[in-house]
Design a binder for these strands. Structure first.
Lengths: 155, 155
DNA sequence: TATATTATGTTATAACATAACAATTAGCAA
DNA sequence: TTGCTAATTGTTATGTTATAACATAATATA
């Protein structure tokens, strides 16, 4: 039984070899930890889990380097507003990897990676670029409360 | 000659007394440093400038507490993507203080505090809330290159 | 196989932020 | 005014996030 994580890992591996990137054993393990995580993890969280899960050491320095690699390969995103990392939720699908928008629940800390409509993003971009400013990234991080947590509250 | 900074400080002072907040001497000095700064400053930048400008000590701990106060009073914003602080650009005007959107130039590090159109924000909010997620903040931080830096590049 | 490049290990330290408790100051009621 | 309370600031220690600098190991390829 091949689950979603394994499929993502395979896809990541094949995509990397296609583009000449080296998804080494340790990099792959870091990705696996992020794929298995229910929430975004800090770099030091990853170090801890790495040791636990694989009984193998990983220095913080190495973790940061591996995260940098995985981000360049578009396999991992960084949440700049919380200094945490998460696997791209579109590794296993055929989607084009556009810049992500994240909805971050400030109560349960889960994150939903969404794709806002092209139209809306275009308007946003247009509105901003009318000021003379050229966007380099359209990654958005929006904080709030997710549906599940709201449901819990109103019980 | 009363300049914009003094006007802002007076306005901040009167707004605080009106709402029962205490804009103490040190808090006021921290605000002044941010008003005078051309760029957003880190907490430790503020500590350094405080010592230089006022020949008075300020611990990092105190700086963080004063920044917290100033943020609660809506006089200062924090850029979560760069861990820096800046004075609200609407202190001296009569505007309602709505949640800000920032355009951050990754080259010269200047920041422009803009107000996107109500309509666009409404669409954005609507599009997000259709997923069941309720936004708690609509502060946006958008990275790119400002007009001045682009002009310099194309010379 | 030699060698150049890339990846990882290791140590130290910079940069950002908060906890915990003490001392001081301001606000206010008796 | 005095004494009480709450808010502010001081102080020290420590936690958290991130990078610099240089050494060693693994890999690619000429």
């Amino acid at each position: 039984m091949t689950n979603k994580i394994d499929i993502s890992l395979q896809k990541a591996q094949s995509e990397c070899s296609r583009t000449g990137l080296r998804l080494t054993d340790k990099r792959c393990k870091v990705l696996k930890i992020l794929l298995q995580a229910a929430e975004p993890l800090s770099a030091y969280d990853i170090v801890d889990q790495f040791k636990q899960v694989f009984a193998e050491s990983l220095s913080a320095m190495s973790a940061y380097r591996m995260l940098d690699f995985l981000m360049q390969a578009n396999l991992v995103h960084k949440l700049e507003t919380s200094n945490q990392y998460l696997a791209c939720s579109h590794i296993s699908c055929e989607h084009n990897h556009e810049l992500p928008q994240f909805l971050i629940c400030d109560q349960c800390h889960t994150v939903k990676e969404i794709g806002l409509s092209k139209q809306l993003l275009k308007e946003l971009r247009g509105s901003i670029e009318s000021t003379g400013f050229v966007l380099s990234s359209q990654q958005l991080e929006l904080h709030g409360v997710c549906e599940a947590c709201r449901a819990k509250q109103s019980e």
